[in-house]
């Protein structure tokens, strides 16, 4: 699963931040997961637990999911991606590359494919806490 690649990326970034801030131990890592990519949080958590290094031995990984909100650039209408029905094959493609949403999503008001993903796109590292 691609959650493993994302978990590896999160740990690599968190390690960089911890080293930059001189943290000997990381106590908390806050991660935001966007709904658009339909990440399986359980798998992400498992991957984090398997891939973590000694620096993350006692780390609490806090994972928050965010709804994917879209805004039409033509008529300014805002809506949530979760409101539309998509087939399994497309959902899987979006899982790997969220921008594939531009193939199947149109503004429910004006039909435009020109919209902005306001929030809920991918995986973000919100903060890294620890002790020096």
């Amino acid at each position: 699963m691609h959650e493993w690649a994302l978990a590896e990326a999160v740990l690599s970034s968190a390690t960089e931040i911890a080293e930059k801030e001189g943290l000997s131990e990381v106590t908390e890592v806050k991660i935001t997961v966007g709904e658009l990519q339909q990440i399986e949080v359980d798998i992400l958590e498992f991957a984090l637990s398997q891939l973590k290094t000694a620096k993350f031995g006692k780390t609490k990984f806090k994972i928050e999911t965010k709804k994917a909100e879209l805004k039409c650039r033509v008529c300014d209408h805002r809506w949530f991606f979760g409101e539309q029905k998509i087939d399994r094959e497309t959902a899987e493609a979006i899982h790997f590359v969220p921008e594939i949403a531009y193939i199947c999503t149109r503004c429910p008001e004006c039909g435009s494919p020109d919209f902005e993903i306001m929030q809920g796109r991918g995986v973000w590292l919100e903060r890294v806490k620890g002790v020096k």
């Binding site: 590359v97 969220p98 921008e99 531009y102 020109d114 796109r121």
Partner: peptide
């Protein structure tokens, strides 16, 4: 990206194309 976009047109603004590029490069 054709493995995911197939025969469909994929209208991407530069920032979205950039996001897709970073995603595929990293995974």
């Amino acid at each position: 990206i054709i493995f995911y976009s197939g025969q469909y047109s994929l209208p991407l603004r530069a920032a979205d194309a950039s996001n897709a590029l970073i995603e595929l490069l990293s995974i």
